[in-house]
Nucleic acid binder design. Sequence first.
DNA 1: GACATAATTAACCAGACCGAACAATGTGGC
DNA 2: GCCACATTGTTCGGTCTGGTTAATTATGTC
Lengths: 221, 221
Amino acid sequence: MAQTTDSDEDTDLPRRRWKQDPDGVRSNILQVAREIFAQKGLSGTRIDEIASRTSTSKRMIYYYFVDKEGLYREVLADAYRQTREAEDALELTGLPPEVALRKLAEFTFENHRRSQDFIRLVMIENIHEAHHMPDSDKISGENSSAISMLDVIYANGMAQGIFRPGLTAVELHWHISALSYFNVSNRATFSHIFGAELFDEAGQATLRQHVGDMILRLVLA
Amino acid sequence: MAQTTDSDEDTDLPRRRWKQDPDGVRSNILQVAREIFAQKGLSGTRIDEIASRTSTSKRMIYYYFVDKEGLYREVLADAYRQTREAEDALELTGLPPEVALRKLAEFTFENHRRSQDFIRLVMIENIHEAHHMPDSDKISGENSSAISMLDVIYANGMAQGIFRPGLTAVELHWHISALSYFNVSNRATFSHIFGAELFDEAGQATLRQHVGDMILRLVLA
DNA sequence: GACATAATTAACCAGACCGAACAATGTGGC
DNA sequence: GCCACATTGTTCGGTCTGGTTAATTATGTC
């Protein structure tokens, strides 16, 4: 209505022109949302803030992700996917079991350090009692490469008689994860209480080595 | 207006009578708030919900705690205080260092298990980058009994030549905390991915023993 | 080049929520 | 009996916020 003839640049609705880029828009939203969710949590995040930091609009968020929770779910699933890929990349075949085990432990430690956002998302998800986790068949522990690697390493060590019996791959993974995770998740409160020394480069190197020591000494016969 | 003479029980303002109990009201609020903050986080918590679950009113919350953040701060400080008290109660004097160390580690593990709300508050506070922590002089690591106990134990073990050199009390505390904390903090996501076996009584007993093993084997010469 | 459909923009809404403002009144120490 | 403090109840404003409605433009296809 109106906007009949002549120039179309003055009053209303000249409406910008744009190029279509569904995948781009989608992943742009996902990436921004991930940062903000990791920073502020599910309830702490404002959809408007995500929107304003994307190169698209709020409406697009709802267009692609239905609602806030839907967006959060996809962010979480995406983060797990990427982390798993990083773990899959580790190559340990051929190494003697005690070397492989230490390497796996220290790799995990470093990998967690690099993945602050992921850790924060997991923290948040635990606050929510894991209600938004991806379908467990997608991320089941059985087909995790971390577990299968540990399985092989432990079996080898047992075969060589250098490891003690009675442990499981999941238990080992639990311990490695605990130490690597805590280092990131509790940095803020821990350094507030005990000082930041353990978190500078030297301190981290020490901790990383201890983590390797602990896991190794736990399994050695 | 109105309400002149006669009976004072029908329309408005007969106003209940009550006993004064500032401390009671205050701690009632604190306790309810703690549960809800632990459950839903800082931004997830509704002041109105806290109010409705107390035996007092929303007005009183503002009366005693100024605002939401003030309440949250006090809840957090209170939780730390209680946890520290529980740690202080542990008695280890006279035990040989390797026994004392294991006992301390396994005690911490159990103690964390019992303090789910506290752990959740710490998780939440880490999400907020420790912005609401009590003044560090109040909870400084130096005057923590956990640290001083570890100091003594480690010194004894060194003197007896059964511990290896190069470790510190804070590092040991870090490891013990990491393992004990993760067990509670990440239960939801971990059991979602790897199953809940490690979290039944038998699984927990195993883990607890492993935690003792790990710490002990880490320091043994 | 018309048409259906997907992608995108822009403006809007209704409810939730924090915190404040009133307005009284009871309680307990001195 | 006085006065500061504790307590209750209610109402309200204003803003924040998740989600919606409606109009508009791009694109692939026949």
